[in-house]
Design a binder for these strands. Structure first.
Length: 184
DNA sequence: GTCGCGATAGTCT
DNA sequence: GACTATCGCGACA
């Protein structure tokens, strides 16, 4: 893993989520390359976070969430959509950052084709995975060596970060662990 | 612009 | 058998 990524993925997960904003996700899936810049993420903690998949301890579904930092955790949501997370912390912690929204960079026409529309390409976790071609087969792969990789921002981030409640959950809604990047 | 609702299937009780 | 870390569409303002 690059030194930069090691540095990024250490410490409390909510801090990591905030610092992931502006990072790029570079995907080589199905023989096609697409990339985005993250603008919306959510932090999910270990067993002490009741809204997290890790709150009940390891299961077959969330196994990769308990892997080492830099692992990709992909799960199926509502039986239809795929959602992708960046695993953080030490192996066994069960902490991860859900990638909810982004700005398209490379391969826009590919994303349009996969999404079947030209607007709202990556403004939700399910849409993001569909546009980038991320599915369950990528669960547990490495964000350093795998088909889906995390890269540092190309230029310093300009904008402000807002912390708000997480979306689509009913427990631990008091934690302001959803972070959005807004440009001026 | 906001609000409500149905689709859909893996996972856990 | 119940519950989702969602999405897209249609109705309405």
């Amino acid at each position: 893993m690059t030194a930069q990524l090691v540095d990024l993925l250490a410490g409390p997960v909510e801090g990591i989520a905030r610092r992931l904003l502006g990072w790029r996700l570079h995907c080589n899936t199905g023989g096609m390359v697409t990339s985005i810049m993250l603008t919306e993420v959510e932090a999910y903690g270990g067993p002490d976070d009741l809204a997290s998949h890790a709150s009940g301890g390891p299961t077959a579904r969330n196994a990769s969430m308990f892997g080492p930092a830099g692992t990709l955790y992909v799960y199926r949501s509502y039986g239809i959509h795929w959602c992708a997370n960046v695993v953080t912390g030490a192996a066994g912690d069960g902490e991860a950052v859900l990638m909810r929204g982004a700005i398209p960079l490379e391969g826009v026409s590919i994303m349009e084709q996969r999404r079947g529309r030209v607007d709202q390409l990556v403004d939700g976790p399910g849409k993001l995975c569909q546009a980038l071609g991320i599915t369950g087969e990528h669960d547990g792969s490495s964000l350093v060596n795998g088909p889906v990789r995390l890269l540092p921002p190309e230029e310093p981030i300009g904008g402000v970060v807002a912390a708000t409640p997480r979306i689509g959950i009913t427990k631990a809604t008091d934690r302001l662990w959803r972070f959005t990047l807004r440009r001026f």
